[in-house]
Amino acid sequence: MNKMVVLFLAMILSVLSIMGIAVFGTAPESGSREPVRAILIDDFDDLNSAGDMFKDVGYIVDLNNNLFTFHYALEPIKAGADIRVSASPSSAVNVQIDPVEQMVYVFFNDPSRRPMVTITLRDVRTENSVALTLWFKPSGHVDVPDLD
């Protein structure tokens, strides 16, 4: 046993101690917070008749920048939430969530393929969810208004 081994042991033990206290030694969260009624996303371009939200990321994401971020909000603001995020297809992006800042980070694995990806936010406690579809609008694409 030498000093490097002791240092390594101390580091491992430190991490384990933090995990141990987090699992066995923390007080339960206050259950008095209201449940989530809705998860809101403002940053979208289109909304279809089924209520699905669409966002064109073609002018943000390219070969030099593969990151798209958007903000979400909870209703009520101080609701007790456990928000999970998923993407479909999952192979096209790596999606991460910061529940403190209420931000979602979408890293496109290969922006040159210009994939269409649906990001879903779901509250585990109430099963409320919201989805935002990210797509790359082709150049020359014109939105035709629905005459009906």
Binding site: S17, G20, I21, A22, F24, G25, T26, A27, E29
Partner: peptide, 10 residues
């Protein structure tokens, strides 16, 4: 961390 009594002992 928001510790319980067990947490303080740990």
């Amino acid at each position: 961390m928001n510790r319980s009594t067990t947490g303080n002992q740990l």
